[in-house]
Design a protein around this nucleic acid. Structure first.
Lengths: 187, 187
DNA sequence: TCTATATGAATGAAAG
DNA sequence: CTTTCATTCATATAGA
């Protein structure tokens, strides 16, 4: 059982059991490509068009596209943040070989916050019908002096400062391994 | 999409492992204690600290901690929901020894689970963390009438147009299948 | 070895 | 946009 992946039936017609949208690989592929090319927050108009196009590959609704972009963007960002430092001490007081494998999904397709984010590096694709202006939102993840076109300037100024001082306190980078007597103190 | 091939990575120390995190018993112990202390949804910051502390016991990443809490909370809720068939009665008022929430983070909480779990003295752990505000969630476990207002919308098999006014335009139907002409042009 | 279950991981859908 | 919830997928492990 489950040697493969369970493909949930997507009934095209009057199905009886469909819970939530289960995108086909083609749909995911296209969405991902769009995302890679910079699209982040498609307008309702764009959403509609994308949805229409993707419906060729299977059942899909506009809201699915909407959510997809929202989730993908949010997770990409979250992943970034969480991944920002995943070095737990290096102290090796024991045989602990934490061997940070850095799982590196270079060839895997799994996506999640912390892992992946292998630069899609696909190609810069552009759907012909989409007014480029909405692509402008790509949040210079590559840190390079991206075009950073006009944008609303207000929309995402929040992330521009990834100067998150969320570890403003003690542990910077060299947090040595915990005293081992970590004890819970609620206070 | 995430067909989930297990990426086998070979530990330097020998032995193959899958990419999946496999918590040590100490890690589980601490996580469980934190959970029973009332922590449900740790902030990113807390996650980091917990992760750092737990890394002493073995390899771990913050996302593991994140997922652990998500899963643990969800499953407890699920279990509770399943079990909620019995006893809507009063016995709930009964005292139960699991010191959940309500811990009242005032230092008055003499029950830093160290007492509850007075284990044979491994270590009394203390995570000098938690801005306590995170403990507040405490979904009253004895909640009798669950808030069923979950509005599952029309999850169930629906097809008729979502009257979702999330989008202003009418996405009545994906009428004809699009020209499939969605073509990506490089630029 | 196969099956059942526990649980890590992922993600669609929403709520906030 | 951010965070949480619900459900599902995948795998490690226990049990038959």
């Amino acid at each position: 059982m489950s040697t493969g992946f369970c493909i949930r039936e997507r009934e095209e017609g009057g199905g009886t059991k469909c819970g939530r949208w289960n995108p086909t690989s083609e749909q995911v592929k296209v969405l991902t490509e769009l995302f890679s090319s910079g699209l982040r927050t498609p307008s309702t108009d764009q959403i509609q068009r994308i949805s229409n196009q993707l419906s060729f590959y299977g059942k899909i609704e506009s809201k699915n596209v909407f959510y997809w972009f929202q989730n993908h963007k949010a997770r990409e960002r979250h992943k970034r943040r969480r991944l920002s430092f995943h070095h737990h001490g290096v102290e090796d007081n024991n045989n602990h070989n934490h061997n940070h494998t850095t799982i590196n999904l270079s060839n895997s397709s799994t996506q999640s916050f912390a892992e992946l984010y292998s630069e899609p590096e696909k190609v810069i694709e552009t759907l012909q019908l989409f007014p480029l202006n909405s692509f402008g939102e790509s949040e210079s993840e590559s840190e390079s002096s991206e075009k950073m076109s006009r944008v609303h300037a207000n929309d995402q100024c929040r992330d521009t400062n990834y100067n998150n001082n969320m570890f403003s306190y003690t542990m910077g980078e060299n947090n040595d391994h915990p005293p081992l007597d970590l004890r819970l103190s609620f206070m």
